[in-house]
């Protein structure tokens, strides 16, 4: 059953990849990439169960953290053109 789930995940990732390639705006691509990252987390967990190696779950936890930080960093870069924006006084970040 995990093989079926992994196949569904791969299909969904392909569809999201289509969106990332089609665009049209940068935000569509970021959204698609974030989505692919979420699916990667689940895929890592499913693969761990599929191969009987539950230690893949640790990788999934780490990837979930990295994925979130990465998305926020890319969005911040697109919005401000500067990853350090807001950490300096006198600049509004909200």
């Amino acid at each position: 059953m995990f093989a079926v789930t992994a196949a569904a995940l791969l299909v969904a990732m392909c569809l999201a990849m289509c969106r990332a390639l089609l665009g049209p705006t940068a935000y569509d691509r970021v959204l698609a990439l974030n989505n692919i990252g979420t699916k990667t987390v689940v895929l890592l967990a499913v693969l761990g169960f599929l191969n009987g190696r539950p230690h893949f779950l640790d990788l999934a936890i780490a990837y979930a953290l990295i994925n979130f930080i990465g998305t926020i960093a890319v969005l911040k870069y697109i919005e401000y053109g500067d990853l350090g924006a807001g950490s300096r006084p006198g600049r509004e970040t909200n």
Binding site: A8, L9, V11, A12, M13, C14, L15, A16, C18, R19, L22, L31, A32, N35, K39, V42
Partner: peptide, 10 residues
């Protein structure tokens, strides 16, 4: 739900 969501993305 995963595939439906991905389909919606497209």
């Amino acid at each position: 739900f995963l595939v439906t969501g991905a389909l919606g993305m497209v």
